[in-house]
Design a protein around this nucleic acid. Structure first.
Lengths: 197, 197
DNA sequence: CTTATGGTGGACCGAACGGTCAAGAACTAC
DNA sequence: GTAGTTCTTGACCGTTCGGTCCACCATAAG
Protein backbone atom coordinates (compact mmCIF):
# COMPACT_ATOMS: atom_id res chain seq x y z
CA UNK A 1 0.00 0.00 0.00
CA UNK A 2 2.97 2.27 0.53
CA UNK A 3 6.63 2.66 -0.12
CA UNK A 4 8.60 0.01 1.77
CA UNK A 5 11.55 0.78 3.98
CA UNK A 6 14.92 0.43 2.42
CA UNK A 7 16.75 -0.26 5.65
CA UNK A 8 16.89 -3.13 8.08
CA UNK A 9 15.84 -1.96 11.51
CA UNK A 10 18.18 -4.28 13.38
CA UNK A 11 21.17 -3.24 11.32
CA UNK A 12 20.41 0.40 11.96
CA UNK A 13 19.98 -0.16 15.68
CA UNK A 14 23.26 -2.06 15.84
CA UNK A 15 25.11 0.67 13.99
CA UNK A 16 23.58 3.34 16.19
CA UNK A 17 24.37 1.34 19.30
CA UNK A 18 28.02 1.08 18.31
CA UNK A 19 28.16 4.81 17.71
CA UNK A 20 26.67 5.63 21.11
CA UNK A 21 28.92 3.02 22.65
CA UNK A 22 32.04 4.50 21.11
CA UNK A 23 31.35 8.18 21.64
CA UNK A 24 28.78 8.38 24.41
CA UNK A 25 25.37 10.01 24.22
CA UNK A 26 26.17 13.71 24.26
CA UNK A 27 29.17 13.43 21.96
CA UNK A 28 27.13 11.64 19.31
CA UNK A 29 25.51 14.06 16.89
CA UNK A 30 22.61 13.46 14.55
CA UNK A 31 25.13 13.68 11.75
CA UNK A 32 27.03 10.78 13.28
CA UNK A 33 23.83 8.79 13.48
CA UNK A 34 23.01 9.57 9.86
CA UNK A 35 26.47 8.51 8.78
CA UNK A 36 26.53 5.16 10.58
CA UNK A 37 22.94 4.31 9.77
CA UNK A 38 22.93 5.54 6.19
CA UNK A 39 19.59 7.22 6.81
CA UNK A 40 18.52 10.82 6.46
CA UNK A 41 17.33 12.89 9.38
CA UNK A 42 13.72 12.60 8.40
CA UNK A 43 13.85 8.82 8.19
CA UNK A 44 15.52 8.55 11.57
CA UNK A 45 12.93 10.76 13.17
CA UNK A 46 10.00 9.05 11.47
CA UNK A 47 11.25 5.60 12.42
CA UNK A 48 12.66 6.11 15.91
CA UNK A 49 11.66 9.52 17.24
CA UNK A 50 14.23 11.97 18.52
CA UNK A 51 17.77 11.33 19.66
CA UNK A 52 16.90 10.46 23.22
CA UNK A 53 14.12 8.04 22.25
CA UNK A 54 16.45 6.30 19.85
CA UNK A 55 19.08 6.08 22.55
CA UNK A 56 16.69 4.61 25.09
CA UNK A 57 15.52 2.08 22.54
CA UNK A 58 19.11 1.06 21.83
CA UNK A 59 19.77 0.80 25.53
CA UNK A 60 16.77 -1.44 25.99
CA UNK A 61 17.67 -3.81 23.21
CA UNK A 62 21.24 -3.87 24.48
CA UNK A 63 20.32 -4.97 27.97
CA UNK A 64 17.73 -7.42 26.69
CA UNK A 65 20.30 -9.03 24.45
CA UNK A 66 22.76 -9.11 27.32
CA UNK A 67 20.30 -10.76 29.64
CA UNK A 68 19.43 -13.27 26.96
CA UNK A 69 23.06 -14.21 26.58
CA UNK A 70 23.54 -14.34 30.34
CA UNK A 71 20.50 -16.58 30.71
CA UNK A 72 21.84 -18.92 28.07
CA UNK A 73 25.31 -19.04 29.54
CA UNK A 74 24.06 -19.71 33.03
CA UNK A 75 21.50 -22.29 31.96
CA UNK A 76 23.68 -23.98 29.38
CA UNK A 77 26.70 -24.69 31.55
CA UNK A 78 27.11 -28.31 32.69
CA UNK A 79 27.95 -27.11 36.17
CA UNK A 80 26.64 -23.82 37.54
CA UNK A 81 29.98 -22.96 39.12
CA UNK A 82 31.66 -22.94 35.73
CA UNK A 83 29.13 -20.42 34.48
CA UNK A 84 29.81 -18.17 37.47
CA UNK A 85 33.55 -18.40 36.86
CA UNK A 86 33.06 -17.47 33.25
CA UNK A 87 30.91 -14.53 34.30
CA UNK A 88 33.79 -13.08 36.26
CA UNK A 89 36.44 -13.88 33.71
CA UNK A 90 34.45 -12.74 30.67
CA UNK A 91 35.61 -9.09 30.77
CA UNK A 92 39.14 -10.29 30.12
CA UNK A 93 38.24 -11.74 26.73
CA UNK A 94 37.46 -8.35 25.27
CA UNK A 95 40.10 -7.72 22.59
CA UNK A 96 42.45 -4.96 23.66
CA UNK A 97 41.30 -2.64 20.90
CA UNK A 98 37.61 -2.77 21.72
CA UNK A 99 37.58 -2.06 25.41
CA UNK A 100 34.45 0.03 25.43
CA UNK A 101 33.17 -1.20 28.74
CA UNK A 102 29.48 -1.88 29.21
CA UNK A 103 27.10 0.40 27.33
CA UNK A 104 24.65 0.36 30.20
CA UNK A 105 27.32 1.24 32.76
CA UNK A 106 28.82 3.93 30.56
CA UNK A 107 25.42 5.46 30.00
CA UNK A 108 24.55 5.42 33.68
CA UNK A 109 27.85 7.12 34.41
CA UNK A 110 27.38 9.77 31.78
CA UNK A 111 23.69 10.50 32.18
CA UNK A 112 22.97 9.40 35.71
CA UNK A 113 22.28 12.77 37.21
CA UNK A 114 20.65 14.25 34.12
CA UNK A 115 18.30 11.47 33.10
CA UNK A 116 16.52 9.57 35.86
CA UNK A 117 15.07 7.17 33.31
CA UNK A 118 18.52 5.93 32.40
CA UNK A 119 19.32 5.49 36.08
CA UNK A 120 16.10 3.59 36.66
CA UNK A 121 16.83 1.41 33.68
CA UNK A 122 20.28 0.65 35.05
CA UNK A 123 18.76 -0.19 38.39
CA UNK A 124 16.25 -2.57 36.85
CA UNK A 125 18.99 -4.15 34.78
CA UNK A 126 21.11 -4.89 37.82
CA UNK A 127 18.17 -6.33 39.68
CA UNK A 128 17.46 -8.71 36.82
CA UNK A 129 21.11 -9.68 36.57
CA UNK A 130 21.23 -10.29 40.30
CA UNK A 131 18.23 -12.57 40.08
CA UNK A 132 19.73 -14.56 37.21
CA UNK A 133 23.07 -14.93 38.94
CA UNK A 134 21.38 -15.72 42.24
CA UNK A 135 19.55 -18.65 40.67
CA UNK A 136 22.81 -19.92 39.31
CA UNK A 137 24.47 -19.60 42.71
CA UNK A 138 21.65 -21.60 44.26
CA UNK A 139 22.12 -24.25 41.61
CA UNK A 140 25.84 -24.40 42.30
CA UNK A 141 25.03 -24.89 45.96
CA UNK A 142 22.66 -27.74 45.13
CA UNK A 143 25.41 -29.24 43.01
CA UNK A 144 27.72 -29.10 45.99
CA UNK A 145 30.21 -26.68 44.43
CA UNK A 146 29.55 -23.77 46.75
CA UNK A 147 29.04 -23.67 50.52
CA UNK A 148 25.33 -24.06 51.21
CA UNK A 149 25.21 -21.57 54.04
CA UNK A 150 25.85 -18.47 51.92
CA UNK A 151 22.94 -16.27 50.85
CA UNK A 152 22.64 -16.75 47.06
CA UNK A 153 21.42 -13.23 46.42
CA UNK A 154 24.13 -11.60 48.53
CA UNK A 155 26.78 -13.60 46.70
CA UNK A 156 25.16 -12.73 43.37
CA UNK A 157 25.40 -9.04 44.18
CA UNK A 158 29.02 -9.41 45.17
CA UNK A 159 29.76 -11.21 41.92
CA UNK A 160 27.97 -8.57 39.89
CA UNK A 161 29.84 -5.75 41.61
CA UNK A 162 33.13 -7.54 41.04
CA UNK A 163 32.32 -8.08 37.38
CA UNK A 164 31.39 -4.45 36.83
CA UNK A 165 34.58 -3.40 38.56
CA UNK A 166 36.58 -5.63 36.26
CA UNK A 167 34.90 -4.26 33.16
CA UNK A 168 35.91 -0.84 34.41
CA UNK A 169 39.53 -1.72 34.93
CA UNK A 170 39.56 -3.32 31.52
CA UNK A 171 38.28 -0.10 30.02
CA UNK A 172 41.12 1.93 31.48
CA UNK A 173 43.57 -0.07 29.40
CA UNK A 174 44.91 -2.49 31.97
CA UNK A 175 47.02 -5.08 30.20
CA UNK A 176 45.45 -8.47 29.63
CA UNK A 177 47.79 -10.40 31.91
CA UNK A 178 47.10 -8.19 34.93
CA UNK A 179 43.42 -8.21 34.15
CA UNK A 180 43.39 -11.97 33.98
CA UNK A 181 45.20 -12.21 37.28
CA UNK A 182 42.72 -9.83 38.90
CA UNK A 183 39.77 -11.81 37.56
CA UNK A 184 41.28 -15.05 38.87
CA UNK A 185 41.96 -13.41 42.19
CA UNK A 186 38.36 -12.31 42.48
CA UNK A 187 36.96 -15.62 41.26
CA UNK A 188 39.04 -17.59 43.71
CA UNK A 189 37.97 -15.48 46.66
CA UNK A 190 34.31 -15.08 45.77
CA UNK A 191 33.77 -18.63 44.53
CA UNK A 192 35.65 -20.85 46.97
CA UNK A 193 35.62 -24.58 46.38
CA UNK A 194 37.18 -27.39 48.30
CA UNK A 195 39.73 -27.69 45.49
CA UNK A 196 40.90 -24.12 45.99
CA UNK A 197 41.58 -24.43 49.69
CA UNK B 1 52.02 45.91 39.48
CA UNK B 2 48.72 44.83 38.02
CA UNK B 3 45.14 44.25 38.91
CA UNK B 4 44.81 41.32 41.31
CA UNK B 5 42.46 38.41 40.79
CA UNK B 6 39.09 38.67 42.42
CA UNK B 7 38.50 34.94 42.65
CA UNK B 8 39.95 32.14 44.68
CA UNK B 9 41.40 29.51 42.40
CA UNK B 10 40.54 26.58 44.64
CA UNK B 11 36.96 27.69 45.02
CA UNK B 12 36.60 28.00 41.28
CA UNK B 13 38.15 24.60 40.69
CA UNK B 14 35.84 23.02 43.24
CA UNK B 15 32.78 24.62 41.70
CA UNK B 16 33.85 23.56 38.23
CA UNK B 17 34.61 20.06 39.44
CA UNK B 18 31.13 19.73 40.90
CA UNK B 19 29.59 20.90 37.65
CA UNK B 20 31.57 18.38 35.58
CA UNK B 21 30.77 15.74 38.16
CA UNK B 22 27.05 16.40 38.03
CA UNK B 23 26.61 16.80 34.30
CA UNK B 24 29.59 15.11 32.69
CA UNK B 25 32.09 16.71 30.35
CA UNK B 26 30.16 17.05 27.11
CA UNK B 27 26.93 18.14 28.77
CA UNK B 28 28.69 20.96 30.61
CA UNK B 29 28.71 24.17 28.60
CA UNK B 30 30.93 27.19 29.05
CA UNK B 31 27.85 29.00 30.25
CA UNK B 32 27.48 26.44 33.02
CA UNK B 33 31.11 26.95 33.98
CA UNK B 34 30.65 30.72 34.03
CA UNK B 35 27.58 30.38 36.21
CA UNK B 36 29.11 28.08 38.83
CA UNK B 37 32.42 29.90 38.91
CA UNK B 38 31.10 33.42 38.75
CA UNK B 39 33.74 34.27 36.15
CA UNK B 40 33.40 35.60 32.63
CA UNK B 41 34.58 33.67 29.63
CA UNK B 42 37.66 35.78 29.25
CA UNK B 43 38.75 35.20 32.82
CA UNK B 44 38.21 31.47 32.57
CA UNK B 45 40.24 31.23 29.40
CA UNK B 46 43.02 33.44 30.69
CA UNK B 47 43.30 31.53 33.94
CA UNK B 48 42.75 27.92 32.88
CA UNK B 49 42.86 27.63 29.10
CA UNK B 50 40.06 26.02 27.16
CA UNK B 51 37.35 23.68 28.38
CA UNK B 52 39.37 20.52 27.97
CA UNK B 53 42.44 21.91 29.76
CA UNK B 54 40.28 23.06 32.62
CA UNK B 55 38.68 19.65 32.79
CA UNK B 56 41.99 17.82 32.83
CA UNK B 57 43.22 20.11 35.57
CA UNK B 58 40.13 19.41 37.64
CA UNK B 59 40.57 15.70 37.05
CA UNK B 60 44.15 15.86 38.24
CA UNK B 61 43.41 17.72 41.42
CA UNK B 62 40.51 15.37 42.06
CA UNK B 63 42.62 12.24 41.88
CA UNK B 64 45.44 13.82 43.85
CA UNK B 65 43.05 14.78 46.62
CA UNK B 66 41.58 11.29 46.56
CA UNK B 67 44.97 9.66 46.82
CA UNK B 68 45.87 11.97 49.64
CA UNK B 69 42.78 10.99 51.55
CA UNK B 70 43.36 7.32 50.78
CA UNK B 71 46.96 7.57 51.98
CA UNK B 72 45.83 9.17 55.21
CA UNK B 73 43.09 6.65 55.83
CA UNK B 74 45.37 3.71 55.18
CA UNK B 75 48.24 5.08 57.21
CA UNK B 76 46.14 6.46 60.05
CA UNK B 77 44.21 3.32 60.90
CA UNK B 78 45.30 1.50 64.04
CA UNK B 79 45.06 -1.80 62.22
CA UNK B 80 45.52 -2.04 58.47
CA UNK B 81 42.64 -4.48 58.10
CA UNK B 82 40.22 -1.86 59.41
CA UNK B 83 41.35 0.56 56.77
CA UNK B 84 40.77 -2.03 54.05
CA UNK B 85 37.31 -2.73 55.39
CA UNK B 86 36.50 0.93 55.36
CA UNK B 87 37.76 1.19 51.82
CA UNK B 88 35.19 -1.34 50.69
CA UNK B 89 32.38 0.04 52.79
CA UNK B 90 33.01 3.68 52.04
CA UNK B 91 30.80 3.87 48.92
CA UNK B 92 27.82 3.11 51.13
CA UNK B 93 28.23 6.27 53.16
CA UNK B 94 27.43 8.50 50.20
CA UNK B 95 24.14 10.22 51.03
CA UNK B 96 21.38 8.94 48.77
CA UNK B 97 20.96 12.30 47.06
CA UNK B 98 24.56 12.74 46.02
CA UNK B 99 25.32 9.44 44.36
CA UNK B 100 27.47 10.82 41.62
CA UNK B 101 29.91 7.94 41.52
CA UNK B 102 33.60 8.61 41.07
CA UNK B 103 34.51 11.54 38.85
CA UNK B 104 37.50 9.69 37.46
CA UNK B 105 35.45 6.61 36.66
CA UNK B 106 32.63 8.62 35.15
CA UNK B 107 35.06 10.53 33.01
CA UNK B 108 36.82 7.39 31.82
CA UNK B 109 33.46 5.93 30.90
CA UNK B 110 32.32 8.99 29.03
CA UNK B 111 35.53 9.97 27.29
CA UNK B 112 37.48 6.74 27.18
CA UNK B 113 37.36 6.19 23.44
CA UNK B 114 37.55 9.84 22.49
CA UNK B 115 40.35 11.08 24.73
CA UNK B 116 43.31 8.75 25.30
CA UNK B 117 44.74 11.16 27.83
CA UNK B 118 41.79 10.64 30.12
CA UNK B 119 42.16 6.91 29.75
CA UNK B 120 45.87 7.07 30.50
CA UNK B 121 45.15 9.21 33.54
CA UNK B 122 42.62 6.68 34.78
CA UNK B 123 45.14 3.92 34.25
CA UNK B 124 47.81 5.75 36.22
CA UNK B 125 45.31 6.49 38.96
CA UNK B 126 44.40 2.85 39.36
CA UNK B 127 48.03 1.83 39.45
CA UNK B 128 48.72 4.29 42.24
CA UNK B 129 45.65 3.18 44.16
CA UNK B 130 46.71 -0.43 43.75
CA UNK B 131 50.14 0.33 45.15
CA UNK B 132 48.69 2.15 48.15
CA UNK B 133 46.21 -0.60 48.90
CA UNK B 134 48.86 -3.25 48.31
CA UNK B 135 51.08 -1.71 50.97
CA UNK B 136 48.19 -1.74 53.36
CA UNK B 137 47.45 -5.39 52.58
CA UNK B 138 51.07 -6.26 53.28
CA UNK B 139 50.82 -4.43 56.61
CA UNK B 140 47.66 -6.32 57.50
CA UNK B 141 49.51 -9.52 56.75
CA UNK B 142 52.38 -8.49 59.02
CA UNK B 143 49.83 -7.68 61.70
CA UNK B 144 48.47 -11.19 61.37
CA UNK B 145 45.01 -10.12 60.20
CA UNK B 146 45.25 -11.54 56.69
CA UNK B 147 46.64 -14.87 55.46
CA UNK B 148 50.32 -14.34 54.67
CA UNK B 149 50.33 -16.51 51.56
CA UNK B 150 48.20 -14.18 49.43
CA UNK B 151 49.85 -11.85 46.93
CA UNK B 152 49.29 -8.32 48.30
CA UNK B 153 49.09 -6.69 44.88
CA UNK B 154 46.64 -9.26 43.53
CA UNK B 155 44.42 -8.78 46.55
CA UNK B 156 44.74 -5.03 46.22
CA UNK B 157 43.51 -5.19 42.63
CA UNK B 158 40.61 -7.36 43.65
CA UNK B 159 39.69 -4.90 46.39
CA UNK B 160 39.92 -1.98 44.02
CA UNK B 161 37.74 -3.68 41.43
CA UNK B 162 35.20 -4.54 44.09
CA UNK B 163 35.17 -0.99 45.35
CA UNK B 164 34.68 0.45 41.90
CA UNK B 165 31.89 -2.01 41.29
CA UNK B 166 30.20 -0.92 44.49
CA UNK B 167 30.47 2.75 43.61
CA UNK B 168 28.76 1.85 40.38
CA UNK B 169 25.88 0.03 41.99
CA UNK B 170 25.52 2.90 44.40
CA UNK B 171 25.22 5.27 41.50
CA UNK B 172 22.35 3.35 39.95
CA UNK B 173 20.25 4.12 43.01
CA UNK B 174 20.50 0.88 44.90
CA UNK B 175 18.96 1.34 48.34
CA UNK B 176 21.34 1.80 51.22
CA UNK B 177 20.45 -1.42 53.00
CA UNK B 178 21.14 -3.60 49.97
CA UNK B 179 24.29 -1.66 49.24
CA UNK B 180 25.51 -2.17 52.78
CA UNK B 181 24.80 -5.87 52.57
CA UNK B 182 26.70 -6.13 49.29
CA UNK B 183 29.66 -4.28 50.71
CA UNK B 184 29.70 -6.55 53.75
CA UNK B 185 29.40 -9.57 51.52
CA UNK B 186 32.40 -8.46 49.50
CA UNK B 187 34.43 -7.45 52.53
CA UNK B 188 33.82 -10.77 54.24
CA UNK B 189 34.86 -12.77 51.21
CA UNK B 190 37.83 -10.67 50.14
CA UNK B 191 39.17 -9.98 53.62
CA UNK B 192 38.81 -13.24 55.50
CA UNK B 193 39.94 -13.37 59.10
CA UNK B 194 39.98 -16.17 61.59
CA UNK B 195 37.00 -14.49 63.27
CA UNK B 196 34.90 -14.70 60.13
CA UNK B 197 35.37 -18.41 59.61
C1' DC C 1 49.75 62.22 39.43
C1' DT C 2 51.21 58.92 35.14
C1' DT C 3 52.23 54.62 33.27
C1' DA C 4 52.54 49.78 32.80
C1' DT C 5 50.49 45.37 33.71
C1' DG C 6 47.42 42.13 34.13
C1' DG C 7 42.19 40.96 35.21
C1' DT C 8 37.38 41.38 33.82
C1' DG C 9 33.17 41.00 31.31
C1' DG C 10 30.48 40.91 27.49
C1' DA C 11 29.87 41.60 22.53
C1' DC C 12 30.77 38.97 18.77
C1' DC C 13 31.99 35.01 15.54
C1' DG C 14 31.48 30.93 12.62
C1' DA C 15 30.23 26.38 13.19
C1' DA C 16 27.56 22.75 14.72
C1' DC C 17 23.70 21.43 17.21
C1' DG C 18 18.81 19.03 17.43
C1' DG C 19 14.80 19.27 15.11
C1' DT C 20 11.07 20.44 11.36
C1' DC C 21 9.05 20.32 7.01
C1' DA C 22 7.70 20.00 2.27
C1' DA C 23 8.35 18.03 -2.14
C1' DG C 24 9.06 14.00 -4.48
C1' DA C 25 9.84 8.92 -4.96
C1' DA C 26 8.36 4.07 -4.53
C1' DC C 27 5.22 1.09 -3.61
C1' DT C 28 0.09 -1.34 -3.32
C1' DA C 29 -4.72 -1.46 -4.25
C1' DC C 30 -7.94 -0.86 -7.46
C1' DG D 1 -3.46 3.37 -15.98
C1' DT D 2 -4.88 6.36 -11.21
C1' DA D 3 -5.22 7.18 -6.31
C1' DG D 4 -3.62 6.65 -1.84
C1' DT D 5 -0.02 5.92 1.46
C1' DT D 6 4.38 5.64 3.38
C1' DC D 7 9.27 6.49 3.05
C1' DT D 8 13.23 9.39 1.72
C1' DT D 9 15.88 13.34 1.07
C1' DG D 10 17.87 17.60 1.98
C1' DA D 11 16.98 22.39 2.58
C1' DC D 12 15.94 25.12 6.28
C1' DC D 13 15.15 26.97 11.18
C1' DG D 14 16.33 28.96 15.59
C1' DT D 15 19.41 27.96 19.24
C1' DT D 16 23.48 27.02 21.46
C1' DC D 17 28.03 25.68 21.18
C1' DG D 18 33.27 26.68 22.16
C1' DG D 19 36.25 30.21 21.43
C1' DT D 20 38.17 35.03 20.36
C1' DC D 21 38.69 39.73 21.08
C1' DC D 22 38.73 44.20 22.86
C1' DA D 23 37.35 48.13 25.59
C1' DC D 24 37.48 48.94 30.23
C1' DC D 25 39.05 48.57 35.01
C1' DA D 26 41.94 48.03 39.25
C1' DT D 27 46.14 47.86 41.03
C1' DA D 28 51.49 48.76 41.86
C1' DA D 29 55.70 51.15 40.53
C1' DG D 30 57.80 55.38 39.39
Amino acid sequence: MARPRTFDEKQVLNAVRDQFWDAGYAATSLEDLMRVSGLGKGSLYAAFGDKRQLFLRVLNSYTEANHGRLREALAGAPRALDALRMLIEAPVDDPAGTRRGCLMANSASELGNADPEVLAHAHRTYETSTALIGDCVARAQREGDLPAEADPVALARALLAAQQGLVFMSRTGMDTATLTATARSLATRLLPTSADD
